[in-house]
């Protein structure tokens, strides 16, 4: 349904005076999502996760240049098409209630999403009520304002905004940090249900544990590139291909809790070779020469010359 290949996003910024500099915030990013599939996108902050969501919704700032291909349902995603599709065929589950209008009841807001998608007021209201009911929200919830909701209720309202759009592709941006484990599981299950209903779901998160609970596949981002796309079960079975993914898995508290030192390279001075080369335990001179190709190894995709089948 969605195919992204070799996507690069560059920001042009003024440095000093009229001198401009180019920031390659995303380079050679690949991702695909099928209908009925939940794909998790994991990575550290600054790895380009949220920018990908912005690119899909067509809300990048004006100083961004985009190259590569983004195809949605067989046709390229141009800025005009993004604008037409967002909120109808492509929907966002925002991060927090901060994205809702604080001066409008949540019932009105969710109903309005239905109306913006072409439903008359009556049916939109019925759909809103049915959706709230579906998520076990109390009967008085539509009359509540965002600040009156608990963390768990707020999640359900935010998921409802995406559900009433009937969107084919739902993007959830960091829906879980700082929530109690029960609320996390509940939110993730709602996303899983959306996928089971035949939609494509992208779950953007830094929490691998959360991602593995519900995802079919996991795309690992590092410094604006996709370093690996693995099946969710590859993590538990040790079938990981990229040294960064392996390091990320080892650093979980329930695993070894050890970290790789160093930082993601900054977009101002990306190395010419592999982006992980300065922190990689397996690095060789070849790694510094060119960006590794994205290869299909052991039923998954990896951007590392040392990954063996």
């Amino acid at each position: 349904m969605l195919t992204i290949a070799n996507l690069s996003i560059t920001f042009t910024q003024y440095d000093q005076g009229l001198r401009r500099k180019q920031l390659a915030v995303i380079s050679d990013l690949d991702l695909s999502v099928q209908a009925g599939e939940l794909v998790a996108v994991v990575g550290a902050s600054g790895s380009g996760k949220s920018l990908l969501a912005h690119a899909l919704l067509g809300i990048l700032p004006a100083n961004a240049q985009l190259t590569g291909t983004m195809e949605f349902q067989g046709a390229p995603l141009t800025p005009e098409r993004c604008q037409a599709l967002r909120g109808s065929a492509i929907a966002l589950v925002p991060q927090s209630v901060g994205y809702l209008d604080p001066l409008m009841t949540v019932g009105r807001q969710v109903q309005r999403v239905g109306q913006l998608n072409g439903l008359p007021a009556g049916p939109a209201k019925t759909l809103m009520k049915r959706t709230f009911n579906r998520y076990d929200l109390p009967a008085q919830t539509p009359r509540r304002y965002p600040f009156q909701l608990s963390g768990g209720m707020a999640r359900r309202v935010l998921v409802s905004t995406a559900v009433v759009t009937q969107a084919d592709l739902v993007i959830a941006d960091e829906p879980t940090p700082g929530l109690h484990p029960d609320v996390v599981t509940e939110t993730l299950n709602h996303l899983r249900e959306l996928a089971q209903a035949g939609r494509g779901v992208i779950l953007i998160t830094h929490d691998i544990d959360a991602a593995l609970q519900v995802a079919d596949r996991v795309a690992v981002f590092y410094a604006g590139t996709t370093v690996e796309i693995a099946a969710a079960q590859d993590f538990g079975t040790g079938n990981l291909r990229h040294p960064y993914t392996q390091a990320l898995w080892r650093s979980l508290p329930q695993n070894e809790f050890v970290a790789v030192s160093g930082n993601q390279p900054s977009p101002e001075n990306l190395p010419p070779g592999c982006l992980f080369s300065d922190r990689c335990p397996q690095v060789t001179t070849e790694c510094h020469q060119a960006r590794p190709e994205f290869r299909f190894v052991r039923q998954g995709w990896v951007r590392c010359i040392h990954a063996e089948s």
Binding site: V42, G43, A44, S45, P177, G178, H206, I208, A247, L248, W249, S251, L252, P253, F257, V258, A259, V260, S261
Partner: peptide
């Protein structure tokens, strides 16, 4: 709010 690697570090 941090990824697993930064958390461990």
């Amino acid at each position: 709010m941090l990824d697993a690697n930064t958390q461990a570090l």
